[in-house]
């Protein structure tokens, strides 16, 4: 049986629903020779900001049970460097190229979206409103993605200047993620991606010190999959724009689980660190799952959880 793995989001057809998550795949260059980059559904680049950032003090990563904490702090060489090097590299492949942008002010986000829309453009942008390692100073919330009013307003502004579809990446560090997802939809987002990492920390009782230089960081990996699945399902019931599911995906069955809960595509993150060539296998396993289940089109399982 020939399986149609293609999925559509915001008018773009992706070869398959398995993408790489921002911050876990560089701009793809690091994986050349390890992964056939043409086989990935999309590459979501590491987040860029208007100006270069050095990131947080070391240690920046630490392992936890079935997961890891990171506090990189959006280290990057700035948006211009990305457009010249990373984006032009990503555009060489048939795989869709998605840029990820962030800022410490609303103006910086809008400026980044404008720059992305000039000259060579990515196929879409993911707006990283939710990096837990960077504090957005203004307002009563630490993260933009915790403030529904701000999300709606900022997404609206970004939509005005962006020539490409806008995906809004949401944080799970909220009381009710459906509220922030609705705000993104109201603002005009083409899709939402969730979840970003959960805030957490690790402590060394012997030295009585935190294990991360930044004290707290974002938890990712298989440890968060159950809570991410629940978030995707709740959001799926609340909004009508596409959802890209993220959280501890390590296998083809994990992809199926997220799609059954309502994700139209997924992003593989921490798994890229464990098995840098593994994403191709995840895609293959998902295809085999569909074949075994007699499902001809990947799109046919979206939200088909039997409850």
């Amino acid at each position: 049986m020939k399986i149609d793995m293609r999925i559509k989001i915001a008018g773009i057809t992706f070869d398959n629903p398995v993408w790489t998550a921002s911050g876990t795949f560089g701009y793809g260059q690091e994986f050349e020779g390890l992964v056939d980059l043409n086989k990935v559904g999309a590459i979501v680049a590491k987040t860029v900001t208007l100006n270069a950032r050095d990131g947080n003090p070391a240690p920046r990563v630490v392992e936890t049970p079935s997961g890891m904490l990171n506090s990189i702090g959006l280290e990057n060489k700035g948006i211009d460097y990305f457009k010249k090097t990373g984006l032009s590299f990503m555009k060489k492949f048939r795989t869709k190229a998605i840029a990820s942008i962030a800022g410490s002010t609303e103006e910086e986000f809008i400026k980044c979206a404008e720059i992305m829309s000039k000259d060579e453009t990515p196929d879409a942008i993911e707006v990283n409103l939710s990096c837990p390692n960077v504090h957005h100073s203004a307002g009563k919330y630490k993260l933009f993605a915790q403030d529904p009013e701000l999300i709606e307003r900022l997404v609206g502004e970004i939509k005005k200047v962006s020539k490409v579809p806008v995906i809004v990446k949401l944080t799970p560090n909220v009381t009710d993620i459906t509220e922030t997802a609705k705000a993104a939809e109201e603002g005009g987002a083409d899709a939402v991606s969730l979840v970003n990492t959960y805030l957490g920390m690790a402590v060394d009782a012997e030295t009585m010190k935190p294990l991360l230089g930044n004290v707290v960081g974002g938890l990712s990996g298989p440890a968060i999959k159950p809570i991410a699945l629940r978030a995707v399902r709740e959001v799926y019931k609340s909004i009508s724009i596409p959802i890209i599911g993220i959280g501890g995906i390590m296998s083809g069955l994990d992809v199926a689980e997220f799609m059954l809960c309502g994700a139209r595509a997924v992003q593989v993150g921490t798994a890229n660190f464990v098995d840098p060539s593994g994403i191709e296998n995840i895609i293959k396993e998902f295809e085999e799952y569909l074949e075994r289940k007699n499902i001809k089109n990947a799109e046919d399982i979206i939200g088909k959880l039997k409850v």
């Binding site: 911050g23 876990t24 795949f25 560089g26 690091e30 994986f31 390890l34 590491k46 050095d54 990131g55 070391a58 240690p59 920046r60 990563v61 630490v62 392992e63 890891m68 990171n70 990189i72 280290e75 921490t270 890229n272 660190f273 840098p276």
Partner: peptide, 27 residues
């Protein structure tokens, strides 16, 4: 020797401060 997740320059965990800017212990 710094904590790292991937070893190939993707996670950017193993940052080392140098006079030439941030470099990675892994690459």
């Amino acid at each position: 020797d710094e904590y790292m997740a991937c070893g190939i320059g993707a996670c950017r965990g193993c940052a080392v401060r140098t006079k030439e800017g941030i470099k990675l212990a892994c690459t």
